[in-house]
Design a protein around this nucleic acid. Structure first.
Lengths: 336, 336
DNA sequence: CTGTTAGCGCATTCAG
DNA sequence: CTGAATGCGCTAACAG
């Protein structure tokens, strides 16, 4: 076997041409005679030649690497987005480096910095709340970036997502329209999570405008256990709610679990509204009414934005996706 | 602001020393005077210097990049593993490029090749069934690789996971011990999935040795809908099973859903055993009895293997993790 | 302990 | 259409 890995010069030697020509063939430069092109390809194959990406990047300043920093891969909503993002980028030969920040924007900064070191040409971030240093770094290096799960963007950045305030309002409106007036929210941790903050604020605003005060707003981690504990807290209060808006289907499932344990009828005694439209929403009893979040689509559209030419990107800066209420069995009209 | 990005020479100039010294400081070479070290660090900060990873890699042949090729990120079991893998690697300054292959080993080969181009120093793969070209490429380039979700490895490769045959046997044994004799399996697609094949084979072997024939083995995609459809097929047969082993909790949840719709009591009329121990197993009614798969741990251990020195790796080649049966409400003794 | 000298492997000028 | 020459930004020898 080859003792050492073949380099571009080796391919050139074997194909009987110059390195420059090999380079042209490898980069699909059309003005190379077909006969030579084939010889080169054959030689490359014979030598199991694999181009050196670092050398390419160093020379051409095009890395074909994109980066993403998300809170965690352990939540289906982010994993689904990464799945479609990667698929689309991969189709176009762009590799994706994924980093998780645990909802910590300082950590996010470090990760972005590392991505810049790696030569990432474009970066996907979640939400619109980031350290100024993060944005400054990206802008200074002229790296394209997109915020996802939000419609808020910087002057020159882009956003693909939905309006979280509207989402909160939509949830409140639906529950209000069902005739509920004792409504609580079991949201996600708002610390360093601007999406959760906006949803909560939108929710409260809609209620207030309707002349109803949110009974209480509790925060819990996006875990089943958090939803269960939060629901207990809510239902053990003096005046328990008749409807609860949960920040995630995971939390809603936990809330539902608490109700089942306590033999509290859902939606008879209390309506539960989820968020995300995860697959689990169809598995619970009753099935969850929820707000569908277009995670897959965000991944695909973020990829399209990053793959577009700078000129085209201008027209794709802010992409607001619509939210859809998925009505199933966990909500019902307030008994009067 | 700086019109162009600062390079190492610029830092050297500003700090009043040679590029080599700057390089030493940046690489934590201890034999640099503290006074100079500080000057360099200050200069780097002032210039917002970010090292060029490609140049570094090209020169040093150390990339600090690892790759992973998994079937999909859209299944919690793989996402969880990637989450812990990335976290551990990231702690050590290693970036992770994730690619998905949709259970297609030809696609997997292309992805691995791309990772090699990118300079990945080590690669995580799922299962033990790969194209010979894939393994040949890795071995020729002397890239460390680990198989996960399996204990089968190549001569020089490593494996972190569990024995899928044993897993299948464990499932069969449990159901057999409950007194069932009409047992079916609703497994995953075995095409290009050696783990699913082994689990099925282990399951069948255990049954056969007990003198019981598996009633039928149906394959379905790892989706709720697949489980539901498969369960229907099973239960509408002439002699429906009294116990079903599902290849994933997702599938089991779908099977459970079918039973609920048909008012088939679980585990009264039929016991359902899942696999993976996903969070959803605790949300269904009844909760799922399942086999716990140590996804997180596999990610962490795979990272530890890849981060270890070649010498240490020898001692970590095959790491078999134990499987644990999590008994909950979806299984019961056969009525006699 | 620090500076000087050479490339790493490739893509891109510029000539032919 | 093709070849020769020139660095991209950095680190590893080697001297001092």
């Amino acid at each position: 076997m080859d003792n050492t890995d073949a380099k571009l010069v080796d391919v050139a030697r074997k194909a009987g041409c110059s390195p420059a020509t090999v380079s042209r063939v490898l980069n699909n430069n059309p003005k190379v005679a077909v006969s030579i092109r084939e010889k080169v390809l054959q030689a490359a194959m014979d030598l199991s030649y694999v181009p050196n990406g670092s050398a390419r990047t160093l020379r051409s300043t095009k890395s074909r690497i994109a980066g993403a920093v998300i809170p965690t891969l352990d939540h289906a909503i982010y994993a689904a987005m990464m799945n479609s993002l990667q698929a689309r980028l991969g189709d176009k030969g762009v590799s994706l480096i994924i980093n998780t920040s645990s909802y910590d924007i300082d950590m996010e900064y470090d990760q972005v910095r590392q991505l810049v070191e790696r030569g990432a040409e474009s970066i996907v971030l979640v939400g619109a709340a980031h350290r100024p240093e993060t944005i400054a770094l990206l802008e200074q290096r002229k790296i394209a970036y997109v915020f996802t799960y939000t419609t808020a963007a910087t002057q020159i950045g882009a956003a693909v997502g939905f309006d979280n305030r509207k989402a909160g309002r939509m949830a409140a409106r639906y529950l209000l329209d069902l005739g509920h007036s004792r409504i609580a929210m079991l949201g996600g941790i708002t610390d360093n999570n601007d999406r959760a903050v906006s949803r909560r604020d939108g929710f409260i605003a809609e209620m207030r405008e309707a002349g109803v005060d949110a009974l209480s707003v509790i925060e819990s981690a996006y875990r089943v256990e958090g939803g269960r504990a939060g629901m207990r807290q809510l239902m053990e209060a003096d005046k328990p709610p008749t409807a609860v808006f949960c920040g995630s289907d995971i939390v809603a499932a936990g809330a539902l679990k608490y109700c089942r344990e306590q033999r509290l009828s859902v939606p008879g005694a209390v309506s539960i509204l989820g968020f995300d439209n995860l697959e689990i929403g169809e598995l619970t009893t009753p099935e969850l009414t929820t707000v569908d979040v277009p995670a897959r689509e965000m991944g695909t559209l973020a990829a399209d934005y990053l793959l577009a030419t700078p000129a085209l990107r201008q027209h794709m800066r802010i992409r607001e996706l619509s939210l859809r209420l998925v009505v199933r069995g966990s909500t019902a009209a307030a008994s009067r």
